[in-house]
Design a protein around this nucleic acid. Structure first.
Lengths: 225, 225
DNA sequence: GATGATAATATTGTATACAAAGTACAAAGT
DNA sequence: ACTTTGTACTTTGTATACAATATTATCATC
């Protein structure tokens, strides 16, 4: 009757999920570039599994919008146009604003505490200068707000939208000139939510996304030049 | 140089998509009930294809949230809880409101005309009393508004959410006592958008969803009794 | 009769084989 | 030189075979 085994259960992960994660990461980090074809046999050999898990992973990527499929031609990594990006951000603006407002009404004391901590964690993360750490801290902060709505569908929906932006997010978080602004905006959002100031929280969230949009679009235009 | 061939191209549809549509319909109409298992070999025999397209279709259903998968156990038709339904409607409330507001600012003259027509079409549809016709007309009306935002991601996101509700939607549109109210609300929404009255359109959309929620939840509670 | 071990069965996960369609390239005709 | 057609090759779509695991049934033991 020992229970100190930590019962790892050695979490079994289907190969399709392993492949999915592998490919997703490769796309998000730009290792595989937009427009590039994903060929099953090729990938199967490279990763060392059969075509079946590859196919299933590619289909998942399609549903996530990271690749587009052409019948009998296979999959290519999705180009995300500026219009596409604006569209994603427009939907997120509506949802993030709403989340901030809802969070004011529904957030628990524990979540308030967690949010406070996440906010300072983010500030610490910025100090490290490590992009990955900063990005994670940022996601953590926002996840608490979204989670505080208690709406799981909202979490799923926003995650799906976020997926579409990760490729750019990373670039934009790398830009150190944005960091102070990010900290300020997070604090404003934190304050409003702690005070349960619905209007203020909504506005802070909207502004946060607006600035993000400006920043990302600027990045894209720089890349293009 | 004839171009009157109509070149049907006999649109090829992969079996996985055929199976997907078949299963989806079966789930949405209640032919397969929540909690029921979807077993690959059984379905393959029943539909008359191999397991491969069945698997792929089931994975698509999972992504759409219509089934939930348990590793090494397969898929079961997703139970949608009352909480889950409320969550979906809460997200839709935020998005539909936003869409109505955006539509005011972006709708073209052609779309205005289409919307007017869709509104009267809906009224005609109600007169027929045919649930399927009514449901289609209702979808058409709302699709124009969502489409008028010019935001494709918005269309995708809302479609995804709508998917989750179709099972209940049908029940609630069957309820004839709601029809007059629906017509009134559609007219209010139409008027506000035609006048490009942003506030009014948002309110009308919100109220429309609110009433829908009340009605559907009532239905569910009736079913449970 | 209840319980636990073990075998039988059912079902998913993965790999491979085959079919069909699409693509590219070369040879033949103009 | 250019177009057209045919053929070889690539790649996806589908079917099936095999492996691993979970479920169920059976039987022995207490």
């Amino acid at each position: 009757m020992q229970d100190h085994f930590e019962l790892n259960m050695d979490e079994y992960l289907p190969l399709r999920d392993v492949v999915f994660k592998t490919l997703r990461k490769a796309i998000l980090t730009g290792e595989i570039k937009p427009g590039e074809r994903l060929m099953e046999i090729h990938l199967a050999k490279k990763i060392g599994v059969s075509r079946t898990p590859i196919r299933e992973a590619i289909h998942k990527l399609e549903q996530e919008g990271l690749v587009t499929m052409i019948p009998r031609r296979g999959a290519i990594v999705a180009e995300i146009s500026e219009k596409g990006l604006r569209d994603v951000l427009e939907v997120r603006r509506a949802l993030d604003t709403f989340c901030a407002e809802l969070a004011c009404e529904r957030i628990s004391e524990e979540e308030k505490e967690a949010l406070r901590r996440a906010c300072t964690d983010f500030e610490e993360a910025v100090k490290t200068g490590d992009t990955t750490v900063i990005a994670k801290a940022d996601v953590a902060f926002h996840d608490i707000i979204i989670g505080a709505t208690g709406n799981e569908r909202m979490v799923m929906t926003i995650n799906n939208l976020a997926e579409q932006m990760y490729r750019y997010r990373f670039e934009y978080i790398k830009d150190a000139s944005q960091h102070e602004r990010l900290i300020k905006e997070h604090r404003a959002l934190l304050d409003a939510i702690l005070k349960e100031n619905v209007i203020g929280a909504g506005e802070a969230a909207r502004e946060h996304i607006d600035n993000q949009e400006k920043s990302i679009l600027m990045q894209i235009h720089l890349d293009e030049k």
